[in-house]
Design a protein around this nucleic acid. Structure first.
Lengths: 164, 164
DNA sequence: TCGTTATAGTTACAAATGAAACCACTTGCA
DNA sequence: TGCAAGTGGTTTCATTTGTAACTATAACGA
């Protein structure tokens, strides 16, 4: 438990940042705590990293994506995707074919085993999300959605980080 | 630009997660984008990592903390703090004495140079925060504050990650 | 007062991440 | 055609981060 302690007196003229009220910092703590809690659920149990899970999640929704498309949809960079995929293919959770008309591209999809795992993990993830949202009342949930939309929108304009 | 593509038809019965509406995922993207944008400001210019900046920020507010107290206040683990501190001390931005009554503890504070850097970086960080918040109207900002408080509160109970 | 246990902080090693170089293939254009 | 430039994806290497073990000191209890 952090000891109660007065702010340093000598610093009045320095206008130090109050980390605990600083939006980027708060977001970062909150996000890490939540994501980590969810990841803990499947990390040990299934030997599945968060990045791997994200890849599986988009492949569950969109069959036949290429690695680059997976990268776009997960907001991961292509190296991270490549690594996640090689582990997933290795583990027999994803199959990787080669595109008919373009031998550079891969055509990705979940295997039977991949689907089975997905169908166990997805409900877990959703349940965790519900737990988090349950701390808010209905009105707050609506505002949260709206606010995230707006904040996210602003970021998109500044570039989503995809290097060209 | 992600090609428009229909959801895989065969997956109706699998109830795949919609990542783009999944709260933990959205928070994670948002948080990383914002933090990274801020960090870019000082990373190159001052050769200062985000963890180092956080340490400096709490030392600006609370003089004479020990490394452990810094860890508590930054929500970083003690190893990360130790590393950040050794870089900061090395660079002459933080000074580290030994506690009078307890030779294990360090007594930390910003040096002159540390304060000078702080007084340049803090306003930059605040400006960035304002940019982000400017995407929201006054009402939304109030709701956001309230919502973050509630979400954060829930996490605290579950344990903030500090191993004992 | 001595030995056990706890705490502050660092070090050492392994795993994850990021950046750049790279290979294979495709496209566009002279 | 054929060759320069672009794209999809992987590999390599350096850096960062996480975990466990370790050192030094302090606190507690018999």
């Amino acid at each position: 438990m952090p000891a109660k302690r007065k702010p340093a007196p000598a610093t009045a003229e320095h206008a130090p940042l109050q980390l605990e009220h600083f939006l980027p910092y708060r977001l970062s703590i909150l996000s890490n705590t939540i994501s980590q809690a969810i990841a803990d659920d499947y990390q040990r149990r299934y030997d599945l990293s968060m990045t791997e899970w994200r890849v599986m999640a988009v492949l569950a929704r969109f069959e036949g994506l290429s690695a680059r498309e997976v990268a776009e949809r997960t907001a991961m960079d292509k190296v991270a995707v490549s690594r996640a995929l090689s582990r997933l293919v290795e583990a027999g959770r994803v199959n990787r074919d080669t595109h008919d008309g373009d031998k550079r591209r891969s055509v990705l999809g979940l295997t039977e085993a991949g689907w089975a795992m997905h169908d166990e993990v997805a409900p877990m993830a959703r349940a965790r999300e519900r737990e988090v949202l349950a701390r808010l009342d209905a009105e707050e949930q609506i505002w949260l959605g709206r606010i995230l939309d707006k904040l996210q929108m602003g970021n998109r304009e500044r570039g989503t980080g995809n290097k060209s």
